[in-house]
Amino acid sequence: MTLARHMRTHTGEKPYKCDQCDYSAAQKYDLENHRIIHTGDKPYMCSVCGFMTAHKSNLAKHMRTHTGEKPYKCDHCDYAAALKSALNQHQAKHTGDKRFLCNECGFRTTRKSHLTRHMMTHTGDKPYKCDQCDYSAALKSHLDQHLTKHTGEKPIMCDKCGYRTAYQSDFSRHMRTHTGENPYKCDQCDYSAVQKRQLDKHLAKHTDEKP
């Protein structure tokens, strides 16, 4: 980095302007990365499952889902994650940090993305439409997952046993069968479960409910 470029980090000068929106950047590289939002270009592709992304760093992160590499370690327990965002989410379970608040109903969460999704329940906005049925979604990621029902595609694969799924949430649950992680704890006894529905079923034994 030249001295001139370095100094912009202190002065706040952003000479590189996007010609399609109000975004500006201190470095040309950042502007080029930003423009991908407008072009939709995704030049980096996973050779294992076909996942495509606009950024090389995202592809490197994605590849960990195939290799099983988990460089991010929790300093409270034995948990390890392939992505830093996943570790942050996990560590919030230890700290109870739920700083993102919904002003409509008081819902709190540890992640801004979860609050964004939650807010859709108030606005009802579902701009992403399926071109094969009447389904619509608030988030593009939800539409992408829905489309796999039409195509039958299951791009996410477990490298330990070959299990395949279209859903990241299913994959996360499946991986717990290998790691032995039981994140859902009963507050009345020592029972813990891999999935929330298993804990709900167990809790019925304490309350004598018969769903």
Rank of each mutant, 00 (worst) to 15 (best):
K28M: 14
D22W: 03
A166E: 06
G162S: 06
K185Q: 12
C21Y: 07
K42F: 03
M175Q: 14
A80T: 13
S47Y: 06
L139I: 04
H178D: 05
H62C: 03
S141M: 08
F51C: 00
G162Q: 09
R5G: 14
K210S: 15
F51K: 01
T2D: 15
C105V: 02
S85K: 09
D125C: 08
G162I: 01
P155R: 00
R108Q: 14
K185S: 05
G50W: 07
A54N: 03
A86S: 15
S169L: 04
L3P: 02
S136Q: 14
H122V: 09
H10T: 12
C186K: 04
C102Q: 02
T53V: 10
C189G: 12
C74D: 04
T116N: 13
Q89L: 06
R35S: 07
D125F: 08
G40T: 09
N182I: 03
T67A: 08
C18Y: 01
C102N: 01
P15S: 09
Y184K: 00
T65G: 01
G96F: 07
M119Q: 13
T207M: 05
Y29E: 14
P155E: 01
K112D: 12
M1W: 10
D134V: 05
V48C: 00
T121M: 11
Y191C: 04
L147T: 15
G96E: 13
C133K: 07
L203Y: 01
G12E: 09
C77K: 09
L83V: 09
H90I: 06
C186S: 12
H150G: 15
H6F: 10
Q132T: 06
I156S: 01
R108M: 15
L59D: 07
T67I: 06
R164M: 15
T11L: 03
A26F: 03
K196Q: 15
C18T: 02
K61S: 15
A82Y: 03
R176T: 06
Y16V: 01
L59T: 06
T148P: 00
C161A: 06
S192D: 10
L31T: 03
I37E: 05
K17Y: 02
L199W: 09
K93E: 10
H114P: 00
K61M: 14
Y128G: 00
H94C: 07
Y29F: 10
T207L: 05
S141T: 15
H142C: 12
H118W: 02
Q20A: 11
S136Y: 04
K84E: 07
H6R: 11
A82L: 07
D144L: 14
H6S: 06
H206W: 04
H146M: 10
Y191V: 07
A166M: 08
L143N: 07
L59M: 11
L143P: 00
